[in-house]
Design a protein around this nucleic acid. Sequence first.
DNA 1: AATCTACTCAACCGCCTCACC
DNA 2: AGGTGAGGCGGTTGAGTAGAT
Length: 339
Amino acid sequence: MRAPCCDKANVKKGPWSPEEDSKLKEYIEKYGTGGNWIALPQKAGLKRCGKSCRLRWLNYLRPNLKHGEFSDEEDRVICSLFASIGSRWSIIAAQLPGRTDNDIKNYWNTKLKKKLMAMAPQSQRKPPTFQSPHQTPPLPSHSLPSMYKDSGGSFSYYSQNRSFTGFEPISQIPSSLSSTNSVSLATNSLLFQTTQEGLFSPMQYYHPVKDNYMVFGSEASCSSNSDGSCSLISYGREIKQEDLGFHSFMSSNGYGDQNQKVMLGNGNNGVEILNHWVEKPNGNIGETPSDYDFIEDVKQQVSSSCNHNDVNGSNNYNNGNLLIDENKTPETVMYHHYY
DNA sequence: AATCTACTCAACCGCCTCACC
DNA sequence: AGGTGAGGCGGTTGAGTAGAT
């Protein structure tokens, strides 16, 4: 049983009064938060929980907050990020200066979701969802390959310091993938399609880049971990089961009937130097608990690959790209994991 | 004008992660 | 290594408001 963060009986709850607001604002502007929200209300003379103060400051009082209507551009950013990372509102908020995660969450739940549903064809209107590993309905074989990531740019998220970058220009798509006949995820205008299963995926405005490839992430902004090790990172995080589920979703759009192969590779400034393929024994990644072991194996191989590059004197540009190939299927799915 | 319904969004709750001891 | 507390996050709630009847 966890102790409450404050004495619930002696803290005020509910809407903040203008007096409380000004007390909090004045105190923080004068002394800062002191890195201790729990102690702050007492020092500031507020009968509030520290968490409540923190929320009030972050969501309402802190300077440079943007209020009011979201622009079309902001809509697009939210949509594409939601499609790619799901409801990680804080990460999405980091891409929209002046917007808070709470703002975006509310906006998504109350307006944007409906807006997108209204755009979808009548027969396909279902609430857009991000595919988690716990909900992996089979996709109809006729469904189009869902394309994942907006922009051809870097897409790194460092969980430690919460920084997150993305939406770099399309020009940063690896040159090796920029020839004709391709499927690309680079987009400036993005629409979404809900499938019959309620899946939600960006479907339009993708520019073909190279035959049989879908590219997830592009810029090689890789750096080794501080301990010198290399690990697979999904958008900056360690790969987790949830990520695998998403990969499964991505690859199962009618192209996941056969065993997957994962290509290990190293890249340099976005130019892939493909190394070798590793075949996953059964089915798509993310479908069985043993897949985690499989990923661990892949990790190992990427790790040793990275270490090898270190030995050769290369620098942090060497990254562990993970390419997933449904061999001999209409699509090859390529994942890049940078760190 | 009164009532009902739908919507919005600020705030809360509880869980998770991380840093510190 | 394990325990504890604080910060942070996402999901949910509910009071207030706008619009419909």
